[in-house]
Design a protein around this nucleic acid. Structure first.
Lengths: 248, 248
DNA sequence: CCGATTTTGTTCGCACGTTCACAAGCTCCT
DNA sequence: AGGAGCTTGTGAACGTGCGAACAAAATCGG
């Protein structure tokens, strides 16, 4: 009956190994789309409809889902709640993930108050700031904790994921400290490149980089129509070559 | 003397056309690294050093830069300020870009106060919120403006880039309105898929998606060591197949 | 002036990601 | 029961991106 019987390898081999990174990055989008459909009371969806909701092409969606297993029914589509559970399981959202945020400035505060985390399986267990003055301050449901308590907090809650929302110069140091106390996944909002040992994952969100990418394309659009020389900024000295003086 | 004389095509043909998207996404990182080097008083850098600063491999960096033109000197490296200018010009940061932020909640407020934009060529010219109660409220240097004034504001400042920081349900409507008044690039922080007409660029930043991607890898790490069955959540009904009752 | 050394710019092979197109499989209608 | 009509899952073609390796160009020492 089921052609999914290839359990021939060493041990419990699910159709698990090796989901392409590009696919992993889209699974949360599908999850969101499925949740929306579910809330509308829709119980079944074709790959075409689901793909439209998720803003991708249907072939891509089907291939992505096929990495998880065969959870659809030909001629019918996907069962919304069932698929939703399967994706959630694959991503690891059947459990709640404790998260710490380090650096409670503008951004850290906004993140602390962001309700989207809790509703998606992430619980912010602590807000940490290096500024002694701010320790004890109430932000949302939590009080700001002292940086010195980092290790204790991480161990107590079993934190594996840390968010860095400090100014750029502090980011690498905080990162090192997080890794030292056992955090193995880091989401970095500071505009700095972090280096970490093997086995630790880093993802970055850089707000101004996104704007710069948009600016590039925006400039492109403008250039197609307008003239080709945008005014502005003085041009620095060309490379300053060591000129060989040739006698004429 | 200068081998940069290939101005032979139809008209002002720069080595401009068609920079790969992956490269465009990295240019801002190089720009940041160059700025850091420049502030340290370093005037020249090899691709190797620059690549280390930017957290990429040197071959990739050289190839990326080669799309802009030949701005390095063999045997020497790149002139930091000169290259910095060239990248800035390519991205379109020789001018300042006016930006509006729509949706002044937690996140919108944090963005409004984020100093990283101004220092990178983006000037926030207006904060707009649909909540009448909040119009006039001071956030950073600006007062919150009324949603009804959107068109006027965009036209007055020549805004081409809009930031959406509203709740998800409002995002598509705001997006449509922005496009209608002439915005052609949108940075979306709302967890929703936006559909836009051709010619309009959208980039999205989804905070919880990033965490979910980390969670996936984190779960992977845990599975290698531990047992393979994480507890939690009830499993929904399997697809609810139309069962053919076979007589045993 | 020439060869050794350094470092860029580019070519090539490979891996990954995307899209098309279609066979396999399911349901429904006659 | 059988065929028509959908929709999934996947094989294959195509395009993009990445990293190694190397030739071209510049500096420096003799």
């Amino acid at each position: 009956m089921t052609p999914r019987n290839r359990r021939n390898s060493t041990r419990d081999e699910r159709p698990d190994r090796g989901i392409p990174e590009a696919t992993v990055a889209r699974l949360p989008i599908y999850l969101r789309a499925l949740t929306a459909l579910s809330e509308q009371g829709i119980t079944t969806s074709s790959s075409e409809d689901l793909a439209t909701s998720a803003g991708v092409n249907s072939a891509k969606l089907r291939k992505d889902l096929s990495y998880l297993g065969s959870y659809g029914t030909r001629g019918v589509g996907y069962d919304v709640d069932y698929l939703r559970y399967q994706i959630a399981r694959e991503i690891g959202l059947t459990q709640d993930w404790p998260v710490v945020i380090v650096g409670i400035g503008n951004l850290g505060q906004a993140l602390a108050n962001y309700s989207g985390f809790a509703s998606r399986g992430f619980q912010i267990v602590s807000l940490i700031d290096a500024d002694r003055q701010r320790v004890g301050e109430q932000v949302g449901d939590l009080e700001i904790a002292a940086y010195a308590d980092l290790a204790e907090i991480v161990e107590k809650h079993g934190v594996a994921i840390g968010v860095i929302a400090t100014p750029a110069p502090a980011a690498q140091g905080v990162c090192d400290d997080l890794v030292a106390v056992g955090v193995t996944s880091i989401l970095n909002f500071a505009p700095a490149v972090l280096s970490v040992p093997d086995g630790v994952d880093v993802r970055k969100v850089d707000l101004s980089i996104e704007l710069q990418i948009l600016a590039y394309h925006e400039q492109r659009k403008a250039m197609s129509d307008d003239v080709l020389a945008p005014p502005g900024l003085p041009v620095p000295e060309p490379p300053a070559v060591t000129v060989e003086v040739e006698s004429a």
